[in-house]
Design a protein around this nucleic acid. Structure first.
Lengths: 256, 256
DNA sequence: CGTAAAATTGACTGACTTCAAATTCGGTGG
DNA sequence: CCACCGAATTTGAAGTCAGTCAATTTTACG
């Protein structure tokens, strides 16, 4: 039995969420050359803002893209987890506007830019799937703008936890209401645009309200409905949207 | 002399900022079929979250993508101006997670999804340019997360004004330190994640500090260096990456 | 003019920050 | 197994930035 972080399977799983992959496309993905690299928390996945000759697939652990401000504070732009592609813009377009580092210990697979490009031009379906995945992350970022822009501290926190729960569940890492989250409160604060102190108090108040339960790097959400209501969390933006434009029009859009 | 909103020239100009376009690609763009549509402020560019059979190029005026919260507040996700493509995800991927409406009176060109797809598959350079443009908007959104997450009211406001100034200048609409901005203070508040009342006070304090000057839908920035310093604005993320701005060689300025 | 939208102002409130100290936790070596 | 250390968490007290509520003035425009 192969260890969970020994193949690019997590990437396949992630792409398959939003796109239908052909068998040959899956195989092409899985036979990509890559280098497995274990990393400690705080390891930089990319050097500052430089372009790169490779991209990464996160196989295990959490990472985050972020920006630092002159006053030393930082804002996390996205949380990356198993299966997420890191740095495609950087290697396809030579653009990058933020840093990326591991939030926890973990493992990445590094893939040569040339290999990725070859793969994408050989398989238009994969190319499309990867772009789709990138738009998906764009949708998450949009929701983050709403989160930091318009929600109270407890709603922000609740929303973030809901998002991470659903994404964990989608990757087969526990269920949405019970999953590993070994981030520090300072990390969470940098996601939510709050201070670590206030995260601490807010976490406690959610706990006291019976909306969450926390313990040793693990989050439990005993009252999913309550938390989503309080946080204004609408799963829609994370929902898998398979069956896109194709030969046969599928008009079966299941509403709420 | 053709009116400024009679052709897709603004789109060409925008794409040319970040990509080198071949002569034939420019021509292909300019010969795209489109329908010119004048719109009043508040007009919806797309119906809610539905997929669409067309996308738009904003020819004139300001528009914004936004989300509404249950409590009635709203958060603007991006400000769109002349030359910006609106709704490509919607028509290429049938995904959309937010509404789009005009903030001011203006004009859009609507383009059939099929035409756009045909164009993109016929000209890989254009396809790449359009993706690049979409990543560019992603970079702006990242900066917005930082803005609402970690900056004070005056820095948020200053940063927003700097961004809009530079983007205006890039599109040949006035200079970065003097441009049209007919947004209401409520609009600006929805961008910055603040209340209209506080935008009003902050605007006044920036004015009193000599950092901006405002009058009838127009912003002037008498002290660009001062405003950027106060706001922590680093132009880098807006800079054209493909060295080539043929239309008008602007004053070169290397940031500190 | 007359009206509605937008901008402006004031007084008050409160959510979140700041600063600082105490406690707990996880790991490591004795 | 226990002592120890730095990191992370937790708690308290005080301060402030921005929100809320509500009224007034200005502007845009038919």
């Amino acid at each position: 039995m192969p260890r969970s972080d020994a193949t690019l399977e997590p990437l396949v799983r992630k792409l398959a969420l939003h796109s239908d992959l052909l068998r040959e496309e899956r195989e092409a993905l899985l036979s990509l050359r890559f280098e497995r690299r274990p990393l400690r928390a705080h390891a930089q996945l990319f050097r500052g803002v430089d372009p790169a000759l490779h991209c990464c697939v996160l196989l295990d652990g959490y990472a985050a893209g972020y920006k630092l401000l002159r006053d030393g504070s930082r804002q996390i732009l996205n949380v990356l987890m198993r299966g997420d592609l890191v740095g495609i813009q950087r290697c396809l377009f030579q653009r990058a506007d933020h840093e990326v580092e591991m939030l926890t210990d973990g493992t990445v697979a590094t893939i040569a830019a040339a290999d990725l490009q070859a793969l994408m031009s050989a398989h238009s379906g994969l190319s499309r799937a990867i772009w789709s995945e990138s738009l998906f992350h764009g949708a998450i970022q949009s929701e983050w703008i709403v989160n930091v822009g318009r929600r109270s501290a407890s709603a922000r926190l609740g929303h973030l936890l809901c998002e991470l729960g659903v994404r964990n569940e989608q990757q087969g890492l526990g269920s949405r209401d019970q999953f590993e989250l070994p981030l520090t409160q300072a990390n969470i604060a940098d996601c939510a645009g709050l201070t670590a102190v206030h995260i601490n108090r807010t976490l406690r108040s959610l706990d006291e309200a019976g909306l969450i339960r926390r313990g040793r790097g693990r989050v439990t959400i005993p009252d999913w409905a309550g938390l989503t209501r309080m946080a204004g969390f609408d799963e829609q933006y994370l929902k898998p949207k398979r069956a896109e434009v194709s030969v046969s029009p599928r008009h079966q859009q299941q509403g709420a």
